[in-house]
Simulated scan of single mutants.
Amino acid sequence: MDAPLHSEIRRFKDWLRNRRYSEATIKSYSEAVAFFFRFLNNKPPGFITNEDLEIFNRDYIIRRKYSVSYQSQVINGVKLFFNILEERVLDPEIIKRPKKAKSLPNVLSKQEVKDILQALSNLKHRFMLVLLYSCGLRRSEILNLQVEHIQYDRGMILIKNSKGKKDRVVRFPEILHDLYGEYLKAYQPKKYLIEGRGGGQYSARSLAEVLKAAVEKAGIKKPVTPHWLRHSYATHLHEGGTDIRYIQELLGHQSSKTTEIYTHVSNREMREIRSPIEDMDIKI
């Protein structure tokens, strides 16, 4: 990429940063714009047209079979870049964006969760996974959690600056208090509740490896990720009778529609439905 385009992308990053976009969004948008320009052989922005965007979508995104979410991410990034820096509009609506598949969340049974949480003997690893499930945390939330955010006396945990730059509180289950005390005594974290070997923030990769090891030891043949534990937490709450509005607050969802997906995988109402065969005088 030539120097002027490098400079343009730096300006784009600065604009996003000044508007308090998350670092993850800044990275994904700027990389999307860089891919776009590279595909067009560094064509000057002033000469780029809607047709270029169509060709890029067809010959780069679709031909390489990238996901619907990636396609939207790229189009949104390019659109914003031209709106802000070029002060002109590329019309990405000319590209028919496929609807994102409405997949149900992956959910583990309570027994499977129990087997995973009991599989590890390492105190830090066990505490980390127990906290992840029992509070329904996102991966980023547990990694960013600081010691000062644990409000032990109130039985609450403060989740700071989470998705959508929102703060919220979640319950710190009393059953975790003794484990929490053991953990503090053994590891004495200075800033982050879960820290790496040399101090500082624990890595997302290490968290994934810990969970993978626990899943294997538990004998579970599923590609479990940290978010599966959050999905399972929400579903188990609903099955236990917790109102969906409270689950929405606990998960930090802005819209109740996001939370309602857990009603589709909960078996609370499903268990009350009798099959017609159960009312038949029939020998099986």
Rank of each mutant, 00 (worst) to 15 (best):
L5S: 00
S7Y: 05
S7W: 02
I9T: 04
R11P: 01
K13Y: 01
K13L: 03
D14C: 02
N18A: 14
Y21F: 11
S22Q: 00
T25L: 02
I26H: 00
K27Y: 10
S30H: 00
S30D: 00
E31T: 10
E31M: 03
F35K: 06
F37L: 06
R38N: 10
N41I: 02
N42D: 15
K43W: 05
K43A: 10
P45R: 00
T49Q: 11
T49F: 09
D52P: 08
E54S: 06
I55Y: 12
I55P: 06
F56Y: 15
N57P: 04
R58I: 07
D59R: 14
D59P: 08
R63N: 12
R64I: 02
V68G: 07
S72C: 13
S72L: 14
Q73M: 15
I75K: 13
I75V: 13
V78Q: 01
V78P: 03
V78C: 06
K79H: 13
I84F: 04
L85D: 03
E86M: 13
V89E: 15
L90N: 05
L90Y: 06
D91N: 10
R97N: 04
K99W: 03
S103G: 09
S103N: 13
K110M: 08
V113A: 06
A119N: 09
A119S: 11
K124R: 15
H125G: 01
M128K: 06
L129D: 04
S134C: 06
S134T: 09
R139Y: 01
S140T: 11
S140K: 07
L145N: 02
Q146E: 15
E148R: 13
I150N: 04
I157K: 03
L158V: 04
I159E: 07
K160R: 15
K163I: 12
G164D: 07
G164F: 05
K165V: 09
R168K: 05
R171H: 00
F172E: 07
E174T: 14
E174N: 10
L176Q: 03
Y180E: 03
G181M: 15
E182Y: 13
A186M: 14
A186I: 12
Y187Q: 12
Q188E: 14
K191D: 13
I194F: 15
E195Q: 12
R197N: 13
G198L: 09
G200H: 10
Q201A: 11
S203T: 15
A204N: 09
A204L: 05
S206H: 11
V215Q: 02
E216W: 02
A218L: 07
G219P: 00
K221T: 07
P223A: 04
P223V: 08
T225A: 04
Y233G: 01
A234Y: 04
A234Q: 01
H236G: 06
E239G: 11
G240I: 05
G240V: 01
G241V: 00
T242A: 13
I244W: 08
R245Y: 12
Y246E: 00
I247H: 00
K257E: 15
I261R: 09
V265G: 05
S266V: 09
E269W: 07
M270I: 08
M270A: 14
M270C: 02
R271L: 11
S275I: 00
D281W: 11
K283T: 12
K283P: 04
